[in-house]
Design a protein around this nucleic acid. Sequence first.
DNA 1: TCGCAGAGTCTCTTCACGGAACTCGAAAGG
DNA 2: CCTTTCGAGTTCCGTGAAGAGACTCTGCGA
Lengths: 156, 156
Amino acid sequence: MRYDEAMQRTDFGAMACSIARTLDVIGEPWSPLILRDVWVGMNRFEQLQSDLGISRKVLTERLNHLVEHGVLERRPYDNRPRHEYHLTEKGTDLVDVLMVMVRWGDTWLAGEAGPPVLYRHHACGEISSVDLRCSGCGEPMHAGDIDVLPGPGAAA
Amino acid sequence: MRYDEAMQRTDFGAMACSIARTLDVIGEPWSPLILRDVWVGMNRFEQLQSDLGISRKVLTERLNHLVEHGVLERRPYDNRPRHEYHLTEKGTDLVDVLMVMVRWGDTWLAGEAGPPVLYRHHACGEISSVDLRCSGCGEPMHAGDIDVLPGPGAAA
DNA sequence: TCGCAGAGTCTCTTCACGGAACTCGAAAGG
DNA sequence: CCTTTCGAGTTCCGTGAAGAGACTCTGCGA
């Protein structure tokens, strides 16, 4: 088993589980927050570092890890060794996970003060939040609404 | 700033961000996988330990943390010091996050073998996956479809 | 040529994870 | 009645990762 240099210890990437594999990419501390910041337009190392208060060493490690996994891309600017980080398509897709985290945090952890941020949906112009629906029939789809069956990529 | 005993280092829970607060609850290594296992019916300590291959010490810490945060509840059984862990309503709601992780992992990381598990939706009986929709208008809602605005609980 | 700013590297300390052995309490078994 | 078993942790130790901050390197701009 090959060990990636940035890993907690156990190799989640090798497990036959999409949750574990996803955690292998963004399961380390700070990674989701880095993604959030890049999403809302913080694209440079210094911005990220000072906004998050993360150690420069760890930020470097996380950015490299995310770039290696194709979630972020490093783009030069200004004709000198300057880079910006941007979401790839794969990374943009990952923001879905963040949006659902936001919903849960807003619902269960925000308390009196209310949610720290609001989302305005372009299509309808309303302040709203995300909702999980079945990609087939369009009805709500949550933990209790499904059966989990072994798929083609199941472990032996 | 009070430090919880089970924490990476930086106190995500104190940040004015629902992602960070959510990470404070399930951001530690293994927590999402523990949730997954409890969700699919692994409710006892020994089951979880042997299924995940997690250290018993860490499993104890995680379970306590999740119980403290009201995501799991500890239920006695068998009239002796035996416990089972079950999802609370708050915890069941968190599974939404896992379902979206699964979708991303299935799409981007599953490779040739295909997804390790499949979901059958009770409402329609079809094998399908989750889709993010606007809770207002019902149209798709992803990273690029929204504006992010400061909310009532924003930082000073 | 000096200084500066962005983007990292290096080093050191502290703490958390992994692994394995040990404990504890209730029932079952001889 | 004494011992074993089993579930559910607890304790201990060694290593590796996070945090903090100082240092480096590169190319421009004054």
